[in-house]
Computed example of a mutant assay.
Amino acid sequence: MTTPRAGCTVDAEGRIAFELTAAQGHGLLLRLRPKKGQPEETLHVLDLGPVGEGRAQAVLGPDPVLAEGRWDVYLLDGSERTRLRPGPRDLRALVGGHLREQCRPLAVRVPYVTEDGYLAVRTWLRPAHAEVDRVDVTGGTLRITARLHGASLPDGAEVLLRRRQGEGTVRSLSPLAAQDGRSFSFTVADETLDLGIWDMFVRPAPGSAMIRLARLLDDVADRKRIFVYPGATAGKIVVRPYYTVDNDLSLEVKQAG
Results as ranks from 00 to 15, higher is better:
14 G>I: 07
176 L>H: 11
236 K>H: 12
130 A>G: 01
188 V>K: 03
222 D>K: 10
40 E>R: 08
231 G>L: 05
209 A>Q: 13
249 L>I: 09
252 E>K: 13
136 D>I: 14
98 H>Y: 14
22 A>D: 14
16 I>H: 00
201 F>T: 09
12 A>V: 15
58 A>N: 07
11 D>V: 10
43 L>R: 13
186 F>Y: 11
240 R>F: 02
33 R>C: 04
84 L>V: 06
181 G>H: 05
55 R>W: 01
157 A>L: 02
206 P>N: 06
172 S>G: 08
5 R>K: 15
207 G>H: 11
52 G>E: 07
155 D>N: 12
7 G>H: 08
202 V>T: 06
191 E>K: 13
216 L>K: 00
5 R>F: 06
54 G>W: 09
111 P>V: 06
113 V>F: 01
82 T>H: 07
121 V>D: 00
92 R>I: 02
169 T>P: 00
65 V>H: 11
58 A>S: 13
48 L>G: 03
238 V>G: 04
76 L>M: 15
221 A>Y: 04
160 L>A: 09
26 H>S: 14
231 G>K: 05
102 Q>A: 14
241 P>S: 12
230 P>N: 10
208 S>G: 07
77 D>V: 04
83 R>D: 00
184 F>E: 03
57 Q>M: 12
84 L>K: 04
111 P>Q: 07
208 S>A: 13
254 K>P: 00
91 L>N: 04
185 S>Y: 03
176 L>K: 14
67 A>D: 10
208 S>Q: 12
209 A>D: 13
105 P>T: 05
57 Q>Y: 02
217 L>D: 10
185 S>N: 04
144 I>Q: 01
181 G>V: 07
246 D>E: 13
248 D>G: 10
102 Q>I: 10
71 W>Y: 03
70 R>P: 00
39 P>N: 11
65 V>K: 11
224 K>L: 12
156 G>P: 02
239 V>G: 01
144 I>F: 04
183 S>R: 13
153 L>K: 00
257 G>A: 14
133 D>W: 02
48 L>Q: 00
200 M>D: 02
177 A>N: 05
124 W>C: 06
68 E>M: 14
67 A>V: 08
176 L>N: 12
252 E>R: 15
26 H>E: 15
22 A>V: 00
206 P>F: 03
60 L>R: 10
172 S>F: 05
118 Y>W: 11
257 G>W: 08
167 E>R: 14
251 L>I: 12
168 G>M: 06
247 N>E: 14
157 A>I: 00
138 T>H: 10
99 L>H: 11
21 T>A: 15
180 D>R: 11
92 R>D: 14
186 F>M: 08
108 V>D: 01
126 R>S: 08
115 E>A: 15
39 P>Y: 11
34 P>T: 12
167 E>C: 01
115 E>K: 12
64 P>L: 09
183 S>K: 05
161 L>V: 08
218 D>T: 05
131 E>M: 07
46 L>Q: 07
110 V>W: 00
200 M>L: 15
83 R>C: 00
214 A>P: 02
254 K>S: 13
143 R>G: 01
84 L>R: 02
163 R>M: 12
